[in-house]
Computed example of a mutant assay.
Amino acid sequence: MSKAFNEELAAIEAGAVAYLTAFSRVDVAAVLATYADDGVLMAPGMPAAVGKDELAVVYPNVFATVGFDMTYEIKEVVQISADWGFVRSATEGTETNKATGVVVPAAYQELFLLRKSAAGAWQIARYCTSKISPAG
């Protein structure tokens, strides 16, 4: 593998890690900054949120209703073309229902499709997350 290719993989991974870090800090502005202007969030039990205007409504609502204490693991980083790549990750931890205070174990798997912007930054074009049922 060439050094340039390794640097691109690191940059693609950094795009997803920036999101995961901002999410864990409950930092809406930083979360939104990781998305392309036309970015799409596909989350469990919700219609797709398309574009930063919709995302700017969804994330504050999520953070207002659920508290997350999660750790992530990057499972796979692939560059598909010069301007596209994906990251597959998994998160585990607990969620707290802010209305009731009930804390439950939670696990998710995520797929980030990132696109390189004209400025050279890898941004989230599509993000799909699915909840994994806790082991019984």
Rank of each mutant, 00 (worst) to 15 (best):
V62N: 04
T34V: 00
E110F: 00
A107I: 00
A22Y: 07
V102R: 12
V78A: 09
N61R: 15
K3C: 07
L32W: 03
K75S: 06
V104H: 10
R25N: 15
V77T: 15
L113G: 04
F5A: 14
Y72W: 11
K116M: 00
D38I: 02
K98V: 01
A49W: 03
T94K: 07
A36N: 09
K131R: 15
V77S: 03
V58N: 05
A10Y: 02
V50K: 12
E76N: 11
V87G: 07
G67F: 02
A90D: 02
T21F: 06
M42P: 04
V104K: 14
E92S: 15
T91N: 11
A90G: 09
P60A: 02
A30R: 03
T129M: 14
S130V: 12
A10R: 14
E73V: 12
T129P: 07
F68L: 10
E95T: 14
E7T: 10
A22G: 10
A30L: 01
V66E: 04
A64Y: 02
S130G: 15
I80Q: 12
D53H: 09
A118N: 08
M1S: 11
A11P: 07
Y108F: 14
C128W: 08
M42H: 08
D53S: 13
N61F: 11
T91Q: 13
L114C: 00
L9V: 01
P105K: 08
V57I: 13
I74H: 06
V77E: 03
N97Q: 09
A18G: 10
P105Y: 02
A22N: 08
V87W: 11
A135T: 12
N97T: 05
F112C: 00
L114D: 00
T94Y: 04
K75F: 03
A118L: 10
A36D: 14
R115L: 00
V87C: 09
E73S: 11
A29L: 07
A14S: 14
V40N: 06
A22Q: 10
L9M: 07
V40H: 04
A125I: 03
V87K: 08
E7W: 01
A22V: 04
P47F: 05
A18S: 12
W122D: 08
N6S: 13
T129C: 13
N61A: 15
T94H: 07
K131L: 11
A90S: 13
V26M: 15
